[in-house]
Design a protein around this nucleic acid. Structure first.
Length: 489
DNA sequence: TTTTGAGTTGTTCGA
DNA sequence: GTCGAACAACTCAAA
């Protein structure tokens, strides 16, 4: 090895300085060359969507500023990743390359190849776990197999040692002389073309604060108060009862270990297995994130195909008009339309409403879950392949749980139950503002004079329901019967 | 190997 | 209005 080690820190979905094992290892060894490579084609067919790219732009901006301040400016390059890594290694005379692992099938494949090639060329490569509480292989059944049901997965996870304590930020960072010259060759951030044109991100800017500082602030605010009412409030789309940490987690602006231990500390530092109530409900959500990654890792085909193979027989309907209306929030079911419009506007949708709109697309319209997954992928700032796949397959009933097939959400009763005053609907479907809480979730069932008084002509100001839910429900049950009948024959 | 208990998030119907 | 039962059958995980 050369006398002075120079380590390339390849940033990916770990856009932070705090609790960053790859960065810390590099800094401990000597000088570092921080690098981000934009190579969307390498993640095909799940290249980052429009909302994700918007987030990524701002997150990179923040990371670059933080690194600049530390005297180690961030290098920015276009893919292919291997070419960029080799070139930078040569220019900066690097001896090591480090990164924190990602677990999407296409990325694993790419990283494996890159690692082999770099090793063969004499570079030392090290990868770290910076994105999960445990590696996807660490939690396994007694037979050593992957879990396919959440609850036993979670019990086993809790029996493991606590996830490692988060690492601090490196105290100091220093760069090799060659970094300055390489940095001069950076394209501008704008040149990556991540920002939308025309600019539709106005509402997103108003509520999100991408970057490590924004993530830490959001976590601090969450564990201060909403955490202690999480169990019930998380189901209320009209309130701010969720953590809203998902986009920060996806881009690694915040580590799950940092969240885990912040929650534990907030309830007195007990072992996680002894935590009950609201904090436990929230920790379970981190457990679901782990489970989603566990599943995608062990069943990599599920991003595109159902985990339960018999569902390949489900008679999905090709309905571009219905799909389009769903995407635009014009279904005539207020809670569904509100959710879809919130998504379009903020790049985010409340979790309870995600389940409702997903059930509606998949069960009422019988449009394939993959169409829904693709739309979410493009529009969510927190679009995450593992979570998106799990969520959609769960909604479609073809995923990793044997939930009863007859679980079909009723959009009207869900609306009444979880948005009891209609405030969520009023916020996102302003044409219904004047309807009372009693009428707002089912305008088509309201009396003509009620609608008239609210200034609504159905079909004109607000759509007629696209389906009769009771009929659509029966149709879905029939179609689902095909799946199990087909199996028996 | 076989058996057994259990499985995120629901809806509808009828007493 | 409230409450419990029915809605099927299957797969998973562990004993």
């Amino acid at each position: 090895m050369k006398a002075h080690p120079v380590t390339i820190v390849w940033f990916r979905h770990d856009l932070r300085l705090d609790d960053n094992p790859a960065l810390l290892a590099a800094a401990a060894r000597g000088v570092i060359v921080p690098l981000f490579i934009f190579a969307p084609a390498e993640e095909s067919p799940w290249e980052p969507g429009a909302a994700s790219r918007w987030w990524l732009h701002h997150s990179l901006e923040k990371l670059a500023a933080a690194l600049e301040k530390s005297g180690t400016p961030l290098l920015l390059r276009h893919g292919p990743s291997l070419d960029a890594l080799q070139k930078i290694a040569q220019q900066c005379d690097a001896t090591h390359v480090v990164w924190n692992r990602r677990y999407e099938p296409a990325v694993i494949k790419r990283d494996t190849l890159i690692k082999q090639t770099l090793l063969a060329s004499g570079l030392i490569c090290e990868s770290f776990n910076g994105g999960l509480l445990f590696e996807p292989t660490q939690v396994a059944t007694k037979e050593g197999k992957p879990y396919q049901v959440f609850t036993p997965f979670w019990r086993t996870l809790l029996k493991c040692d606590e996830p490692a304590e988060p690492f601090p930020k490196p105290k100091t960072l220093s760069a090799p002389a060659a970094l300055a010259a390489a940095h001069k060759k950076n394209p501008t951030l704008d040149a990556l073309g991540l920002l939308p044109n025309p600019d539709w991100a106005g509402r997103m800017r108003s509520i999100w604060r991408p970057g490590e500082v924004g993530a830490a602030a959001r976590l601090a605010a969450f564990v201060q108060k909403p955490l202690f009412a999480y169990g019930n409030e998380r189901d209320r789309p009209d309130r701010e009862g969720t953590s809203s940490l998902s986009p920060h987690l996806h881009f690694g602006e915040l580590s799950p270990r940092r969240i885990w231990h912040a929650v534990r500390e907030q309830v007195g530092g007990k072992p996680a297995a002894q935590i009950t109530g609201d904090a436990e409900v929230y920790l379970r959500e981190l457990g679901w994130r782990e489970f989603a990654n566990h599943l995608l890792y062990h069943f990599p085909h599920t991003a595109a195909a159902p985990l339960r193979a018999d569902y390949a027989r489900f008679p999905w309907v090709n309905d571009p008009v219905g799909l389009r209306a769903w995407q635009r929030g014009r279904m005539g079911f207020p809670i569904v339309d509100a959710g879809m419009r919130q998504l379009w506007s903020l790049g985010w949708m409340h979790n309870r409403v995600r389940m409702i709109v997903a059930s509606f697309l998949v069960k009422d319209l019988r449009v394939s879950w993959l169409e829904g997954a693709r739309w979410f992928w493009d529009t969510l700032v927190d679009a995450d392949l593992a979570a998106n796949t799990l969520g959609w397959q769960w909604a479609a009933g073809c995923g990793a749980d044997a939930a009863p097939y007859f679980r079909i959400f009723n959009p009207t009763s869900q609306g009444k139950k979880f948005d009891p005053h209609g405030e969520y609907v009023r916020q996102w479907v302003p044409e219904l503002t004047k309807l009372s809480a009693a009428d707002i979730h089912a305008p088509a069932e309201s009396l003509p004079q009620t609608l008239a008084a609210a200034g609504i002509e159905l079909g004109q100001d607000y759509p007629e329901p696209i389906v009769d839910h009771a009929v659509a429900r029966q149709r879905a049950l029939e179609s689902l019967k095909c799946v199990s009948n087909g199996k028996r024959s």
